[in-house]
Design a protein around this nucleic acid. Structure first.
Length: 578
RNA sequence: GUCCCCGUAGUUUAAUGGAUAGAACGAGAGACUUCUAAUCUCUUGAUCCAGGUUCGAUUCCUGGCGGGGGCACCA
């Protein structure tokens, strides 16, 4: 496809040379509207003035010279609109494209743009003792998809998770654990019960911190004690809660389809972060103010941030120095280090990265922050401090129940039913997170996010399932597999929209990967699923008496493959049956 | 107060400076003796306001208006 694109581009450029434009830079794009052919260029509009012709005149002349060149892949070139030139490709090109998909299979769409680069992606970053809430689900879905897109571009990806296991919120939760009325979970209780208790303890400790001066002082003291590990009872509660939380997170990662390669815990980098801050305090990067060590971002057009408190404790900012240098210590060959968080931390990260660049220019340069919007309800921002959150686990469960309700009439074994419902539920949630550009907020309305009508994860999964089902029928009727040796029907009308679109997949992937924009994949997959479903509705694919049936089967196979590869990039699985 | 982000059908949203602004939900009408109707077909409807740059602006610039987020010892 890329070769064809370059060829067409070159002929247009040659045409422009004849018109007197020496160094023409022609932009050739896929036509957004299939009625405008497969490729389009605005070259005539761009160069009309220079040549002294009207855009349409120039376009007509360019088409003439392109036509003289007789590219074998091009069916026709024509002038349209204000002076656009549209290129329609021959059906044979699409047949070859289908063959290509059939050969490459799960590798179709993969590129070598980032070959041999090592890229780290840090995402999800939950807090122990606190619930895994919907925000973490967002970070996870986005981080995982960016990891996969990067991997698909040839890079070696290190998936990194940075759980918070120290800090004031932990002190609040441990305090809540000690002082809250009600029974502490037993070892035999389920993980959900244990982590639910921790969540309550946190809410309890958090409101105590805000409502009473004595409690606040006590919790601040406990924070220091925990940091120093100087109290056996507190340590014991801490260790227990930590284990419960981490085990619970692992369960969720497994369901969501993430396997982290590495973890760096906040407690591991706190000390180092403080050391770095103090070291660079001497060098003038940081300064002392009111007993604390701060980074004066205001001098750099940002805002001031405290790195080490007047009590001598490193804040999150200082820990960030420890964390990001640790990443490069573990992987000296890291080409890029990406951090995925919510956009409320945008300004915070500008300060942190500015400080990091002054601590280590190379590391600062290679570290990037990308952010996503927040999941919010109609009522406003969620806060785990107040306890009005929907946990990730609760959401998954609700969606899964809805799926099961929908599956009631279908024939499944109990085990398969559970497994399939989970795949569909995860698909529905991830789709609703990834369907739009990642910067914006998602207004979370359970009913809609979870609806399986129209644009949705299940819609994509269902289209794949239908295709699989067609292929199963073809196998049963003894069509030859693999079907790559189909006879391409010589006499054919227009190529259909499906074949024209599925061969664009590699370019979509490239764009999504370079822009960190999984929603391009979503939009594209939704488009081809729609095309497949329409085609499926009016066409009989498996038909012994139809000489073009083998090609239709091949096209179905190619569609299923592209859908599967695309869904994989989104972290969504494809059930065989649903 | 100040800095950052955002403003597209009733709703949720798409559109590397290009063509008739593309979907989905909702509403209305229709389609299963045929490979899974979680589907398909048709109808309905949108770029916050005012300037500017450009052959061309949803996109870039300026100013309003509206919404969200950040701004010292939380993460």
């Amino acid at each position: 496809m890329i070769e064809i694109k370059e060829k067409i581009k070159k002929t247009v450029e040659d045409g422009l040379k004849k018109e007197g434009v020496k160094t023409a830079k022609v932009e050739l794009k896929h036509s957004a509207d299939l009625a405008h052919g497969d490729f389009a260029t605005n070259a005539a509009l761009v160069y009309a003035k220079k040549v002294g012709k009207s855009p349409r005149e120039l376009a007509i002349d360019l088409v003439r010279s392109v036509t003289e060149n007789q590219l074998e892949e091009v069916e026709k070139a024509e002038v349209a609109g204000a002076g656009f030139i549209n290129f329609h490709l021959k059906p044979k090109v699409f047949a070859l494209g289908v063959t290509d998909i059939l050969e490459k299979k799960e590798r179709f769409g993969k590129s070598e743009h980032l070959l041999d680069e090592k890229v780290m992606v840090e995402y999800t970053d939950p807090n122990i003792f606190k619930p895994f809430h919907i925000g973490h689900l967002m970070s996870n879905a986005i981080g995982e998809s960016i990891s996969r897109l990067t991997e698909f571009s040839g890079a070696k990806v290190v998936r990194m998770c940075y759980p918070s296991d120290t800090g004031l919120h932990i002190a609040k939760a441990v305090w809540g654990y000690k002082n809250k009325l009600g029974s502490v979970p037993k070892d035999s209780d389920s993980l959900s019960e244990k982590t639910a208790f921790l969540g309550e303890a946190y809410v309890f400790g958090s409101s105590a911190y805000e409502n009473s001066k004595e409690n606040k002082a006590e919790i601040d003291e406990l924070n220091k004690i925990l940091y120093e590990k100087s109290d056996a009872e507190a340590n014991k509660i801490y260790e227990k809660g930590r284990t419960w939380s981490l085990e619970h997170f692992e369960e969720l990662y497994a369901v969501l389809g993430t396997k982290f390669d590495e973890y760096i815990f906040e407690s591991e980098v706190a000390g180092r972060g403080k050391e770095i801050t103090l070291e660079f305090l001497k060098k003038g990067v940081f300064e002392e103010s009111e007993g604390a060590v701060i980074f004066d971002g205001e001098k750099r057009g940002l805002h001031k941030r405290v790195f080490v408190t007047s009590k001598g404790l490193p804040t999150y900012e200082a820990k960030e120095m420890g964390l990001n240098t640790e990443k490069f210590k573990r992987h000296e060959d890291l080409e890029r280090s990406i951090i995925v968080t919510a956009s409320e931390q945008d300004d915070y990260f500008k300060v942190v990265l500015s400080a990091l660049s002054e601590v280590d220019e190379k590391i600062g340069h290679k570290t990037e922050h990308i952010s996503h919007g927040m999941m919010r309800f109609a009522e406003g921002k969620m806060s785990s401090r107040k306890g009005n959150v929907i946990t990730g686990e609760a959401l998954l469960k609700q969606v899964k129940n809805l799926v099961k309700e929908k599956m009631k009439e279908r024939d499944f074994s109990e085990e398969k039913r559970e497994e399939t419902a989970e795949i569909i539920a995860v698909g529905a949630i991830k789709y609703s997170i990834l369907r739009q550009a990642i910067g914006g907020d998602i207004v979370f309305e359970l009913e809609k996010s979870v609806s399986f009508e129209g644009d949705s994860g299940p819609y994509l999964q269902y289209s794949h399932t239908r295709a699989s089902s067609v292929l199963a029928k073809a196998r049963a009727e003894n069509f030859q597999f693999p079907i790559s040796n189909f006879q391409f029907p010589e006499k054919r009308n227009e190529p259909n929209s499906l074949e024209r679109l599925i061969i664009r997949f590699p370019e979509i992937v490239e764009r999504a990967a370079s822009e960190y924009a999984p929603h391009h994949i979503v939009t594209y997959l939704t488009e081809i699923a729609g095309q497949f479903n329409s085609w499926y509705a009016k066409e009989k694919i498996v038909d012994k008496g139809d000489p073009s049936s083998p090609y239709k089967i091949a096209l179905t196979y190619a569609f299923a493959q592209v859908m599967k590869n695309g869904l994989w990039l989104l972290g969504i699985k494809t059930p065989e049956k649903m």
